[in-house]
Design a protein around this nucleic acid. Structure first.
Lengths: 170, 170
DNA sequence: ATTAGAGATGTGATGATATAACAATCGAAA
DNA sequence: TTTCGATTGTTATATCATCACATCTCTAAT
């Protein structure tokens, strides 16, 4: 990967590689702010705070993990508070839901519009987000063969990230 | 598809195509019985019954749907009864878990060993199971690029099956 | 400024999915 | 026929997600 590519650069996964994470977070927040302004969406305090919480790492957090963080900061512990913010972030591409974990991660790519591919570490729950173009093509071809009309796709690989492979028992 | 291919033939999805479903069910049960005998696994009455319930159609059933069926037949309504049987069937490849739906379907292919691709109808919840070889290759290549070691994969496309596309509003 | 309407939030309750824990039983093999 | 691991019975609880309805808050039209 070209070192000149930033944390949200185009060369692929950032989650498993050392990177300037402060910049990564800042860029994601600024992207979200800019996109909301352009699109007339309201990045309210709780929505922005939830995005910040997700952006603290590339580890997937459950809705109740997020809620716990919010309540530690004074919010009342009502699940809809977390779910509503997460739903907003997912709906607009600022975060993704990981079906395999029932959990959420911040988006780490300028997510135009096809569902990404995720690589999920089973040890540390870190999630790398990859572009899905080749796999999407394969899926479309298979779907066409059986007359299926694809809406959304879930592509998640569970395994071990580079860090967690180190020292793993054979 | 070659009509000579049976319901568990090699040419791909059977779930969305008209087929001799009685034969389909029978073949799946017999496969399971034979495989358990060979492998020294115990296809106990409740396990076999749960497989039969899943095999009644190609529609995904939740664990509590299965449990309801069992209790209608006299079992006591304890969730572990259903989950244990489902876990057994999934562990040995006689059924699959659909992450997107938190639900289960009977396996419709002689599942040697790579995780299948599923096409899930959002209207009728029918699930077609396809071989995953090309997609698995793509995923492996992407994983190698970032040093990720893939264990299991989840590939699920949600959309509309051929039957449910008919008469769908544009 | 006033206010109507849509979107967002506060709040209590409940629904849906899944597992922990431990006792009792069964079945294959020593 | 005893033993040991796998399976089942049973109670309880954990975890994930949504409903329903009141209230508030922005924004834009008046």
């Amino acid at each position: 990967m070209d070192e000149a590519d930033g944390p949200r650069g185009s060369a692929g996964s950032v989650a498993f590689a050392p990177h300037d994470h402060a910049r990564c977070r800042r860029a994601a927040i600024e992207d979200a702010q800019a996109h909301c302004k352009t699109a007339g969406l309201r990045l309210t305090p709780v929505r922005e705070r939830v995005l910040e919480i997700l952006l603290e790492s590339h580890v997937a957090l459950g809705a109740y993990d997020v809620l716990r963080r919010l309540t530690d900061e004074g919010a009342v512990p009502q699940p809809p508070i977390a779910y509503r913010a997460l739903d907003f972030l997912v709906a607009h591409g600022f975060a993704h839901r990981i079906e395999k974990l029932n959990a959420y991660v911040a988006c780490t790519a300028p997510c135009e519009r096809h569902d990404p591919v995720f690589m999920i570490c089973r040890d540390c729950r870190a999630v790398a987000e990859l572009p899905s173009a080749p796999i999407a093509r394969d899926l479309e071809r298979e779907a066409a063969r059986i007359g299926f009309d694809i809406g959304r796709t879930v592509v998640e690989a569970e395994g071990l990230c580079p860090s967690c492979r180190v020292g793993e028992t054979a």
